[in-house]
Amino acid sequence: MENTFDPDLMHAIFKLVWKRRSLEREKKEGTDNLEGELGAGPSKKSRPTTANANALKLSCELVRVFITEAVQRAATIAEAEGVNKIEPTHLERILPQLLLDF
């Protein structure tokens, strides 16, 4: 069985980012409309985002592909240089295109 990420871990990371962003948004809104509907409807927009199970699995796959691509491309460069160990310089060479591709 191929090793990949744990969807639960991915979910935890996503939730953390979403929580951080919703806090930021709340802060912004709080300064924007102080006089506006105070007790009325903060809950509507700040309802937390979720992700379904398959979406998480697919995200795991996407991140896995990102890592395998990084290693494979760096390995290609290392091979071209005739060494059999991937060094930081090899990663440096492939990094720009990798980041453009993902």
């Binding site: 991915m10 990371i13 996503f14 980012v17 979403w18 962003r21 985002t49 992700a51 979406a55 995200s59 996407l62 991140v63 990102f66 890592i67 990084a70 290693v71 760096a74 390995a75 290392a78 091979e79 059999n84 160990k85 991937i86 060094e87 930081p88 090899h90 990663l91 993902f102």
Partner: peptide, 27 residues
């Protein structure tokens, strides 16, 4: 291929940042 430790750490960090970005996109 062998892979040196700093390269792996770097790739892991990149992938983590990538996941955070992905989370924002998905939202």
């Amino acid at each position: 291929m062998e892979i040196s430790q700093p390269v792996m750490e770097c790739i892991a960090d990149l992938a983590f940042k990538f996941s955070e970005q992905l989370a924002k996109d998905l939202e």
